[in-house]
């Protein structure tokens, strides 16, 4: 059964179209990702799903309900971890959870018990009585995630859950999210980190300019939009451009970057052997497996959009 179902979903802000007619279906128990560069429309989509932003056009159904009519009833069953932490700076760590629980109508006693359990889950029990402000970015994010779980939601929405966190903090967040997934909670997240998408998502859509440009599991996307392996060649020259022409026919596709040339090939070693046969002698050679990042850059381009 689809927990979230969008058909031709559109979000406009004045003349600007942030989400331009997307079809999405999220099934119970899966981890679903929205991948895309900044401005792709990921957050706007998440806000519509979170019932805090009315769709401009199209159909949207969440938990079988209509967000335009049943906003409060849907929100009661969602957990939301926004991109920017909006914790209550005037309350302590524990109070942030107990007070938030009250907004869902959860009895005080239950709220207190759940707060303690969740603080334990996100490893913040020792800071329970601390103020929120002095907490590190990673701790704040964990607390925000704990807050999103206080109503035992069926779907948890996470907008860029690890952006701005250091590697340790990211891994801790991933591990907690993975445990949630194991418990059967449906996760919907946005990210522009490929490793995050590969780690967490069963299925994802790649968004660019408000549209969905690709859809599938991380593995399926790599198979469809990239090759099995990528060879990175660095030539000791001002410009890498002249070498590209000489690489025609090596691998399936060649891409020139300012500092290196990428050769997309099913067999990287075979491609390297061909490069040597052509006596091109690059200064550096690296054969690696193709990643979601290659898919992403292929689909959304390397131009910086901000």
């Amino acid at each position: 059964m689809a927990l979230i179902r969008a058909r031709g979903l559109v979000k406009r802000f004045g003349d600007f179209t942030a989400v331009d007619g997307i079809d999405v279906e999220v099934r119970a128990g899966e981890a679903f990702g929205f991948l895309g560069p900044n401005g792709a429309g990921k957050s706007s989509t998440m806000r519509m799903i979170g019932c805090v932003s009315p769709p401009s056009d199209g159909e949207l159904s969440i938990l079988g309900l209509d967000p335009r009519r049943d906003g409060p009833a849907i929100r009661a069953r969602l957990g939301v971890c926004p991109q920017l932490d909006n914790l209550d700076a005037e309350l302590s760590v524990r109070e942030n959870l107990t007070t938030y629980a009250r907004f869902f109508g959860i009895p005080r006693k239950v709220a207190r018990r759940r707060a303690d359990e969740l603080l334990d889950f996100v490893q913040l029990s020792e800071r329970a009585d601390a103020k929120v402000e002095p907490l590190s970015g990673g701790m704040k994010r964990r607390l925000t995630i704990a807050r999103a779980l206080v109503n035992e939601p069926e779907i948890v929405l996470l907008d860029e859950p690890t952006t701005g966190l250091d590697p340790q903090a990211r891994h801790l967040v991933w591990e907690r999210l993975f445990r949630l997934k194991q418990q059967g909670v449906t996760l919907v997240l946005t990210t522009h980190y490929m490793d995050e998408a590969e780690q967490l998502c069963d299925r994802l859509v790649v968004m660019d300019g408000g549209r969905i440009v690709a859809e599938g599991s991380p593995r399926a996307l790599i198979e469809r939009y990239s090759t099995r392996e990528v060879v990175e060649l660095r030539f000791a020259a001002e410009s890498q451009e002249p070498f590209a022409a000489k690489l025609t026919g090596v691998g399936e596709r060649v891409e020139v970057l300012p500092d290196r040339v990428l050769v997309y090939a099913a067999d990287g070693d075979e491609a390297v052997a061909e490069v040597q046969r052509r006596a091109l002698a690059p200064a550096g050679v690296l054969v690696r497996r193709s990643s979601l990042e290659d898919v992403f850059l292929h689909l959304t381009g390397r131009t910086l959009v901000d």
Binding site: P72, A73, R75, A76, P82, D88, F103, F104, N151
Partner: peptide, 14 residues
């Protein structure tokens, strides 16, 4: 500035 209500509006509160 505190964005307090943004968080609260993600709950059933209107």
């Amino acid at each position: 500035y505190q964005k307090l209500y943004d968080g609260i509006l993600a709950t059933p509160v209107r």
